[in-house]
């Protein structure tokens, strides 16, 4: 057996184990994305990073060594996990309001876990499909604002007013604006509700509105 220490918990694991096995055996968790036990451990997403003897390594594919000291979380790790997760979101076409997964996906849960504010309220809205307020022509801010509130207001049939602020990704904005336009939400109405955040709309947003609504 190989002796390692995970966040001050000493533990024995069979030789040839990966760090993730030791972490789980010691009762800790690290966020995992591309890893599928026994199926895929090519260490491509770099979300499961931990520190092994001070060095940042992917826990899913890094073998344990005798006496290895493993840290599963600190400021630097959180920051880098967050950055890498933001990179995942940057390549993901976010259309939670139309996604068949209805929010039960790894990206949504990880973004909450890591505190990345890239996923919109629609991901956790229970009014999917025909019930969707936007689809009923009501200017709801769900597609544009940060998830994490469990979308309580929408359950009461009140449109979202974006308590947690705007998501910041331009591509998400663009998708959302297209969604509004498809459902005949008027440009003026949209501008009116976004003024909750911005007395004067930022030019990046104005340009996008123009781009989408002029098409």
């Amino acid at each position: 057996m190989v002796k390692v220490k995970v966040n001050n918990v000493e533990i024995d694991v069979p030789p040839g184990s990966y760090i993730i096995d030791a972490i789980e055996k010691a009762g800790f968790k690290v966020p995992l994305l591309c890893y599928l036990q026994d199926l895929f451990n090519e260490a491509t997403c770099r979300i499961c990073i931990v520190k092994a003897n001070g060095r940042i390594v992917p826990s899913c594919r890094f073998p344990v060594q005798e006496g290895m000291v493993i840290t599963t979380s600190d400021d630097e790790l959180s920051k880098m996990r967050k950055i890498n997760f933001e990179l995942v979101l940057a390549t993901h076409n976010i259309i939670c309001w139309n996604c068949y997964r209805k929010g039960s996906c790894l990206l949504v849960s990880l973004s909450k876990e890591l505190g990345v504010e890239g996923i919109p309220v629609c991901s956790e809205c229970s009014l999917y499909g025909d019930l969707c307020l936007v689809k009923q022509g009501i200017p709801c801010l769900g597609p544009l604002t940060i998830a994490g509130c469990e979308a309580e207001c929408t359950k009461q049939n009140a449109p979202c007013i974006g308590c947690r602020g705007f998501v910041s990704s331009t591509s998400t904005w663009r998708n959302a604006l297209r969604f509004y336009k498809e459902n005949n939400i008027k440009k003026e109405d949209l501008e009116a509700i976004t003024r909750i955040f911005w007395p004067i709309l930022p030019s990046r947003f104005q340009n996008l509105i123009r781009e989408v609504y002029m098409q």
């Binding site: 260490a43 491509t44 997403c45 770099r46 890498n84 990179l87 390549t91």
Partner: peptide, 12 residues
Amino acid sequence: GKCLPCRVGMKI
């Protein structure tokens, strides 16, 4: 393009 930080991060 195998790993995310390099593939997407360098693009950004």
